[in-house]
Design a protein around this nucleic acid. Structure first.
Lengths: 188, 188
DNA sequence: GTCTATAAGTCGATAGAC
DNA sequence: GTCTATCGACTTATAGAC
């Protein structure tokens, strides 16, 4: 049985994804949970706290995941494949909360915003390093690493919007298709 | 010399991109333009009108662009390359307004929302058909067209966020890199 | 722990002087 | 065409009864 606090967070993640943080009122959220807006405050401190916790939990997920891959004895190409598979798994398991890391983080206030962007930038730096290693090993084309990183992460970041409309797809099949797309492109 | 109305729209596009439609107040916008909020209403009807016009202009741009490609005598692969190049050109020329088509369209109200999503869905259907033709011609791998479409458009849709931080890049170089990424992937 | 009532502030938009 | 002043609705959050 989920705590009422967790139920509120789950509904908040879903509403923030569908309408955005600013366009979701505490009255909207309360209605979804099945109580009055004032009652929410017996379980949470503020609307901002909901956004902060949801985003920080996802940032922590990615940080831990990156550490696991980085400390593994795998080669760069296997690390990249592992990172892609990991991103897809996170998206399947936390579709609503994952969606917030793409756009809603801009509504973080105070020190939380800096803490969040620090973790995000660190993740991207590590991801970029894996791509650089892949190129240096000679298995990947000589390319602009910045564009390759942006293009790869864009596909992964927007997977949630596709997945939320195709929840029936087999995650393993999705992983195979996405990895093929990113590594080998569209062309035969 | 740009009309004051156009100046307001340009500033609105930039603020909507940076903070989002809901988080941008008419007082914010007025300050950027250099007047009081009430004075904006001598040039525009409403905040919603700003979003509607910005989005509909972009939708029209893509609709016309797709018609040009579809009625051309090119083969499917050349059509795809043309569509990618076109998307990149639109992003370079209208970075702020283009950004809105990715996420801010959800804040459209009334019939405009349906009119917008109709144009968007039609564009995506045509794009999907080009991909399908590419596969049937045998030049492309056998793959899930839905995932290929989503992945390709994700990279293109998020180009604006990368480009707004790298305005110095040569658009032709960008086009070459992006096309290579999408068609041939990361791997050599 | 949930409710009603409300505080305190912001929002989009308008009225009317100049 | 720009301003000041303001309306009415909506916002997050709190106070206090039960």
């Amino acid at each position: 049985m989920k705590s009422k606090r967790q139920q509120i967070k789950d509904h908040a993640a879903r509403l923030f994804r569908k309408r955005g943080y600013k366009a979701t009122s505490m009255r909207d959220l309360a209605k979804e949970v099945g109580m009055e807006a004032a009652s929410l405050y017996n379980h949470i401190q503020s609307k901002q706290e909901l956004l902060r916790e949801l985003l920080m939990e996802m940032a922590q997920l990615f940080t831990t995941g990156m550490e696991e891959v980085q400390t593994s004895p795998l080669g760069p190409q296997e690390k990249l494949e592992r990172l892609i598979a990991q991103y897809i798994r996170f998206t399947v398991e936390h579709t609503d909360a994952i969606s917030l890391i793409t756009s809603e983080w801009v509504h973080l206030e105070g020190p939380a915003k800096e803490a969040y962007t620090l973790l995000r930038d660190r993740y991207e730096d590590n991801f970029r390093q894996v791509l650089t290693d892949c190129i240096e090993q000679g298995h990947f084309r000589e390319m602009d690493v910045g564009i390759a990183l942006f293009s790869t992460l864009s596909s992964l970041r927007w997977l949630y919007s596709w997945y939320s409309k195709h929840r029936d797809v087999n995650p393993l099949e999705l992983e195979k298709e996405m990895t093929g797309m990113l590594l080998d492109g569209l062309r035969k």
